[in-house]
Design a protein around this nucleic acid. Sequence first.
DNA 1: ATATAGCCTAAACCTAACTTTAGGTCAAGT
DNA 2: ACTTGACCTAAAGTTAGGTTTAGGCTATAT
Lengths: 153, 153
Amino acid sequence: MYTIGEISKMFNLPISTLRYYDKQGLFPFIKRKSGIREFGDQEIETIKVIECLKKSGLEIKRIKIFMKWCMEGKSTYLKRKELFVEQKARVEEEIKRMNQVLSVLRYKCWYYQKACELGDEKKLKKMDLSELPDDIRKDYLSSGLNSLVKNTK
Amino acid sequence: MYTIGEISKMFNLPISTLRYYDKQGLFPFIKRKSGIREFGDQEIETIKVIECLKKSGLEIKRIKIFMKWCMEGKSTYLKRKELFVEQKARVEEEIKRMNQVLSVLRYKCWYYQKACELGDEKKLKKMDLSELPDDIRKDYLSSGLNSLVKNTK
DNA sequence: ATATAGCCTAAACCTAACTTTAGGTCAAGT
DNA sequence: ACTTGACCTAAAGTTAGGTTTAGGCTATAT
């Protein structure tokens, strides 16, 4: 059993955050000894799940719902699975998006690197696609920077 | 030249958001005709950069600083490059983190899938690492779920 | 002529996820 | 005896990034 201060150090989360989570109902099983919270394996496991779901973009409110399902036992396995499947899809999408952003950033890094070297971006601005280095052209093309964002056909 | 309404549709951004960006100083070059904003190629390019920097996790305040640099001309090429390099590193980190989260989620999907099949998670809970399918074991091991999060050695 | 649509502003409002503040309990060390 | 440190609560405050509201102007279609 751990105190809130120990858990705070263990997970590098402020004490106030842990209390906030508790207040939001994220530790439905937590015990207290004369008012003081006792974090056990259960709660440590819960914090790991919270961290994961938070990073996957789930709001506290919905994490609370998940915790409620955990309290309801076997009957909610399917719901819980579906939540994880949903979040998995979400994170996969997010990673795709991030890779696109990365293409833009790589292109921009190259662009300003060149601008520094040349001392002027004028030549750079009127550069044709075919003049770009192969990898940078690839980034540029997959970045969406060339096309109009919404192809309002 | 485009009106704010046209740009809103083009980028699928609320008009209020575009006005908010303008108010924050994100369109330093924008012209007006009898009070009405005229978005040109300059601004379209700017919106693409804003979107990219926002998705990379940069705050509006710092995007504004970047726009100021753009107005200052050649002397700020290096600063601008450094910003993009920094954001690139940030996004690369974020993608790593997301892949870890994905490992946890894949493990959890498998776990609850099994729980659904077995109707009970008790056997699942006391399962040894060696009993997991190879890919799931890999996810489990790279998820950090097994170790204490802060190895406070 | 009048209604509708699209533009404008300033200022108030909103939401999530915390954090801070103010005030209080309790056990251990000096 | 008293100070320190770790715990507690309720409630107010904070921040970013918008959104909504209220009121007003102007051009075109009916």
